[in-house]
Computed example of a mutant assay.
Amino acid sequence: MFSVFKKKPVTQAPEGLIDVRALIAASTLPSHLRLAEAYFQNMSLASGEFRKPFMGAEAVQLVPLLGVMLSHLRFHSGVRILDFGCGTGWLSQSLALMGAEVVAVDPSATALRLAEANTLSRYPELKGRIRYCEFDGEHLDVEDGQIDRVVCMDSFHHVPNPDVILREFGRVLANDGRAVFSEPGENHSRSAESQHAMRTFGVIENDIVLADIWPLAQRAGFKELKVAPYAVPPLLSLQEFDDLRSRARAKATMNKLFTDVYSSLPTGGRQFVLMKDEPARDSRFRDGLAAHLTAKTFSDGPLLKIDLVARNTGTTTWRPSGQTAGSVNVGLITRGPGGDWDYEFRRYRSIPAQVHPGEVTTVTLTIAKSEFEGRELYADLVAEQVIWFGQNGAAPIRVF
Results as ranks from 00 to 15, higher is better:
3 S>N: 15
5 F>R: 02
6 K>H: 15
8 K>C: 00
13 A>P: 03
15 E>H: 08
19 D>A: 12
28 T>M: 10
29 L>C: 02
31 S>K: 12
32 H>A: 09
34 R>G: 08
35 L>F: 01
44 S>A: 06
47 S>C: 04
49 E>Q: 12
51 R>C: 10
56 G>M: 10
56 G>A: 06
61 Q>P: 00
72 H>S: 08
77 S>H: 15
78 G>V: 05
80 R>V: 07
81 I>K: 07
92 S>A: 15
92 S>N: 10
93 Q>V: 07
94 S>V: 00
97 L>P: 02
98 M>G: 03
100 A>K: 04
100 A>E: 07
103 V>M: 14
103 V>W: 06
103 V>E: 14
108 S>Y: 07
108 S>R: 06
110 T>S: 08
112 L>H: 07
113 R>H: 13
114 L>V: 11
116 E>N: 12
117 A>G: 13
119 T>Y: 01
123 Y>K: 08
127 K>S: 12
128 G>N: 11
131 R>Y: 05
133 C>S: 12
135 F>D: 13
141 D>S: 13
148 D>K: 09
150 V>T: 10
151 V>F: 03
153 M>E: 09
158 H>C: 04
160 P>G: 08
160 P>C: 04
162 P>L: 01
173 L>M: 12
184 P>V: 12
188 H>R: 08
194 S>R: 03
195 Q>G: 03
195 Q>E: 06
204 I>S: 03
207 D>C: 00
207 D>E: 07
213 I>P: 05
213 I>Y: 05
214 W>D: 01
217 A>G: 02
219 R>A: 15
223 K>V: 13
223 K>C: 13
227 V>S: 04
229 P>W: 11
238 L>H: 11
238 L>V: 14
245 R>L: 15
247 R>K: 15
247 R>F: 08
250 A>G: 14
252 A>I: 01
257 L>C: 05
258 F>M: 10
260 D>G: 00
264 S>H: 14
265 L>P: 01
266 P>S: 09
269 G>H: 05
269 G>V: 00
273 V>G: 11
274 L>F: 10
275 M>L: 15
276 K>W: 00
276 K>Y: 02
281 R>G: 06
282 D>L: 05
284 R>D: 09
287 D>F: 03
288 G>S: 03
289 L>E: 01
291 A>W: 04
292 H>Y: 04
293 L>D: 14
295 A>S: 13
296 K>S: 11
303 L>Y: 13
310 A>M: 11
310 A>R: 06
313 T>C: 06
318 W>I: 05
319 R>C: 13
325 A>V: 00
326 G>R: 06
329 N>Y: 01
331 G>L: 03
333 I>Y: 04
336 G>N: 14
338 G>Y: 04
339 G>L: 11
339 G>R: 09
342 D>L: 02
342 D>K: 02
344 E>N: 11
347 R>W: 12
351 I>T: 03
354 Q>F: 14
357 P>H: 05
359 E>R: 02
360 V>S: 02
362 T>Y: 12
367 I>C: 12
369 K>S: 09
374 G>K: 09
383 A>H: 03
388 W>R: 14
389 F>Y: 14
391 Q>D: 15
400 F>T: 01
